[in-house]
């Protein structure tokens, strides 16, 4: 159930973010730059003044350029965006607090991060992580080389939450991940990372109601009504996203996850190219 103070909770994150001076710092990483693009390390302050890191790659040539903003998956390492994408788009890949390169002073544990502070929404680590995601959007909007009308968000719930709070993004490519229908899905598996929820509840069965309440602030179904931009929703299996699909405010292309990094990757690249520049993507040689 959507909490009554849902909007207030998320406004609180925005308020915390607004109280921080971001102080962005860009430093070229010559080893990662190529004739086609320049790669920078980006550091900026997020919620509570925490300094976070992101890779920021800008194509050579005259901008402004469309942007692919990679929101991170669950794990300590964030890859530099693909070479082929970097040739054509500004690419930004965030390392949220706790992930490598954003792990001072807080280094996330895996397993562990998924339930850190989960007893209350205000203390749940993903409140601050959501702030990290939003702070990069503010950075992008401040840059002259960025075409602000052509920003695509790419990822799981971190991308969805960002899309729900930043309607100026042009497109959302969203694959439901760990915060979609979490406890029900966790009850059907013993595999990590979802097993982290089971571990937590096994050790503290009495906390179930508070965990459910915390997760309700992050539940995608409650965020989708705020997403108006064109969205690609990648569905794990038939019927997996019925309620979620209906909840989106904007147009949604609903497609099945094909369990193929090649087929899913080609489809993703084509969809993003269509939304950002009506053009053809550059694909890895083995995909052509």
């Amino acid at each position: 159930m959507k909490p009554k103070d849902f909007d207030q909770f998320w406004a609180g994150i925005e308020s915390d973010l607004n109280s921080v001076v971001p102080e962005p710092e860009l430093k070229e990483l010559p080893i990662r730059s190529k004739p086609q693009f320049t790669v920078y390390g980006l550091w900026l302050s997020s919620v509570k003044g925490y300094r976070i890191f992101a890779y920021y790659s800008v194509p050579k040539g005259e901008g402004p350029f469309p942007v692919i903003y990679h929101l991170p998956n669950y794990g300590s390492v964030v890859h530099i965006p693909p070479f082929e994408e970097r040739c054509k788009y500004i690419c930004v890949a965030l390392c949220h607090r706790g992930q490598r390169l954003s792990d001072e002073p807080f280094a996330a544990a895996y397993p562990g991060l998924l339930t850190l502070g989960i007893e209350a929404a205000e203390s749940y680590i993903y409140r601050e992580i959501a702030g990290d995601c939003l702070s990069v959007m503010e950075f992008l909007k401040s840059r002259e080389e960025v075409d602000r009308r052509r920003i695509c968000l790419l990822g799981g719930e971190l991308a969805l939450w960002t899309a729900a709070r930043r309607s100026e993004a042009a497109a959302l490519h969203y694959t439901p991940a760990l915060h979609y229908n979490s406890l029900k899905r966790a009850s059907q598996t013993s595999n990590y990372p979802l097993e982290e929820f089971n571990d937590h509840l096994r050790g503290s069965a009495s906390s179930r109601l508070s965990v459910e309440k915390t997760l309700s602030y992050f539940e995608p179904v409650h965020h989708a009504p705020n997403v108006q931009m064109p969205t690609m929703l990648v569905e794990d299996s038939v019927g997996f996203c019925d309620a979620l699909f209906e909840a989106f405010a904007g147009p949604v292309d609903r497609v099945p996850f094909q369990h193929s990094s090649y087929r899913d990757g080609v489809r993703q690249a084509n969809w993003i190219a269509d939304k950002l520049d009506n053009g053809q993507p550059i694909l890895p040689a083995h995909w052509c």
Binding site: I31, R32, I80, F83, P284, A285
Partner: peptide, 17 residues
Amino acid sequence: KLTRTYPYEEINDYLGI
């Protein structure tokens, strides 16, 4: 030499400089 994807791209990055 066959790919531009990480991690192998680390070697191309290294040889680039």
